[in-house]
């Protein structure tokens, strides 16, 4: 038996009085109150890919939710307190990992319901070059958000996320395990098919003639061998004369033929790109929902446009 160290008799009496002051407790519990085991699993997600995976795998057994407004990138969204109350009450919270949705780091969420769907491939996350670090005096330098997070653009990683979602659902509802496993396998098969297709497109791409309008395509570039520089242009904004000047200089030095965009760029932007010999290709990362289009259809449409552009050439 362990010994009580370092206390006096008076201390013991004081502790006893302290305990007495704490008065009576509620009925005994051995563990954290279990959540309801019946009804659909309420699953909150941090982006559209995970919401789509949850809905596909869970079917009627899961209510998959992404409360971020449609016109906001969920990666940079800051939920309202009432949104967080929803996340707190969820049966499962699906996280994307890789520093995606920084708000999670500032929020009070139950640890027991969070599922990091990137846990299986942490070693494959891409560190961002050039992220600013700072320190206070002699402390070690610290960088904020230093990992690329659109991991699902590597469809092989997306398939791993889908498997993780299926396993989390099966753990939460063991009686439905076979349903979840079948649905998960179908989804993974779809993702692998798209992955193979993108690999073929990547194999057909031979030179460094791609540009990326935004630094969100790192996993697409890495997985499918689509090399090229990233700019920081927004589809709904004119980049300004300085950026156009730099692009013109780059074109003179090393001409690019295509530029991937998150959404359709402004007509004026398309015209000026055409003058520089650059064809814009919309490749939506699909971080948020697009009305009337499911996420996999969106990704297939991305692949269609990319394939049409590269193979046409």
């Amino acid at each position: 038996m362990r010994r009580i160290g370092g206390h006096s008799l008076s201390g013991a009496m004081g502790a006893l009085l302290l305990a007495a002051s704490a008065c009576t407790e509620a009925t005994p519990v051995a563990r954290v109150e279990p959540r309801a085991k019946t009804g659909p699993l309420v699953v909150y997600t941090v982006n559209e890919p995970l919401r789509y995976f949850a809905a596909r795998i869970g079917g009627p057994h899961v209510e998959a939710l992404l409360p971020a407004p449609d016109d906001v990138d969920p990666a940079f969204w800051l939920p309202e307190p009432e949104d967080l109350v929803g996340y707190q009450g969820a049966d499962l919270i699906l996280r994307s990992g890789g520093g995606y949705a920084r708000w999670i780091g500032f929020a009070s969420l139950p640890r027991s319901t969070q599922v990091d769907t990137s846990a299986g491939y942490r070693d494959r996350l891409i560190a961002l070059r050039g992220s600013v670090t700072h320190s206070h005096g002699p402390q070690a330098a610290q960088s904020h958000g230093d990992t690329a997070f659109t991991t699902w653009l590597d469809l092989e990683l997306a398939a791993q996320q889908a498997r993780a979602v299926g396993e989390a659902f099966a753990d939460a509802r063991p009686l439905l395990r076979s349903d979840f496993e079948i649905a998960s396998a179908k989804l993974v098969s779809d993702l692998e098919r798209l992955d193979e297709r993108l690999l073929e497109i990547g194999a057909a791409y031979e030179d460094e003639s791609l540009l990326f309008s935004h630094p969100v395509y790192q996993y697409l570039q890495q997985r499918y061998g689509l090399g090229g520089d990233s700019l920081h242009w927004e589809p709904d904004q004119d980049p300004g004369p300085d950026e156009w000047g730099r692009l013109a200089e780059r074109q003179a030095r090393s001409p690019a033929r295509w530029m991937l965009w998150e959404a359709e760029p402004l007509p004026e932007t398309q015209r000026r790109l055409g003058e520089l010999g650059i064809t814009p290709i919309v490749f939506s990362p699909g971080g948020n929902a697009v009305e009337g289009v499911d996420w996999l259809a969106l990704m297939n449409a991305n692949a269609d446009r990319l394939e049409a552009a590269i193979r046409r050439d």
Partner: peptide, 10 residues
């Protein structure tokens, strides 16, 4: 470069 050291005035 990309590294900033702050003083106590921050």
């Amino acid at each position: 470069g990309d590294r900033i050291v702050a003083n106590a005035a921050v």
